[in-house]
Amino acid sequence: MKVLNLQCASGHAFEGWFGSEDDYQSQQSRGLLTCPMCGLAEVLRMPSAPRLNLSGARTPLASVPSAPASPTPVAGSRSRPEAAARHSQAPQTPESAQAEAILLQAMRHVLANTEDVGAHFAEEARRIHHGEIEHRNIRGETTPIEAQALRDEGIDVFHLPIPDGLKGPLQ
């Protein structure tokens, strides 16, 4: 099992778990690696400290080679120098990491405490608002025009873009 530190072009840092280096390269080349925060497929592998199992080590710690100092490029990254440039100019600060964590926690709370009604959102919201069905917290999909029509009717709605990584089960 390989655990890699990854980062998207927007600067979101996350971990990826892969069965092998070939598995990682295969997923990267097929465009299957996306940022769980924003969904971007421009994902770079970042430097990471190796995991050392020293329980039975006979060599002194000083002779263990250190991790490379520069990021390892991924397949296709040479054809996109602008993505690498964006990575170097958008480091994630502790404040932005904390803000992302709070946002993800809020999104998980919304997902856990609402019912997904999908494309029937506007219809269900109206039925709840007019008392035709029992009140419950819902989420779903609607067009901007339908959302504005709901607001005009006095129904509170807001747009919350949910990253693809949160839509399915997280591990």
Rank of each mutant, 00 (worst) to 15 (best):
M107K: 00
R51G: 15
H109Q: 10
I128E: 06
E141C: 05
A85Q: 10
S70P: 01
S20V: 04
R108Q: 12
I138H: 01
A49T: 05
D156I: 03
G168C: 09
M1A: 09
N53T: 02
P65R: 07
S26D: 11
D152H: 13
L111V: 05
Q105E: 15
P91R: 03
S66K: 01
H129T: 09
G56A: 15
A49N: 13
A49M: 05
C35S: 04
G168E: 10
H129A: 13
A62M: 09
H135A: 14
G140D: 04
P169T: 15
D152P: 07
D156F: 03
D23Q: 09
E95W: 02
E100K: 04
V3Y: 01
P71Q: 11
L160V: 12
S88L: 10
E146T: 14
S10M: 07
E123N: 14
H130D: 12
A112I: 05
S70G: 03
A9S: 09
S55A: 08
E134P: 00
E123D: 09
Q171I: 10
P71F: 05
S48I: 11
D164T: 02
R136F: 13
A62R: 13
E15A: 12
I155T: 01
S70K: 02
F121T: 00
M107F: 00
L6C: 09
A147V: 05
H120T: 15
L32T: 08
S48E: 11
I155A: 01
P73D: 09
G11S: 02
M107S: 00
Q148R: 06
S10K: 00
S63Q: 15
S77P: 00
M46A: 15
R151H: 08
N113W: 00
Y24D: 00
L4R: 01
S66V: 14
A13W: 02
L40P: 00
G165P: 00
H130V: 13
E134A: 13
T72H: 13
P73I: 04
A49F: 06
Q171L: 08
H135V: 10
N53L: 15
S66M: 14
S29M: 06
E15I: 02
H129M: 03
G56M: 13
A119K: 06
N113D: 14
N137T: 13
A149I: 10
H135W: 08
M46I: 11
P36T: 14
R51I: 15
G16T: 07
R127L: 09
I102L: 10
A83S: 12
P73A: 02
E21N: 09
H129N: 07
D23F: 01
G168D: 13
S26M: 10
S20M: 15
C35M: 08
A119Y: 09
G76A: 12
L111H: 02
I155C: 07
F158K: 03
E15T: 06
E124T: 14
P81E: 14
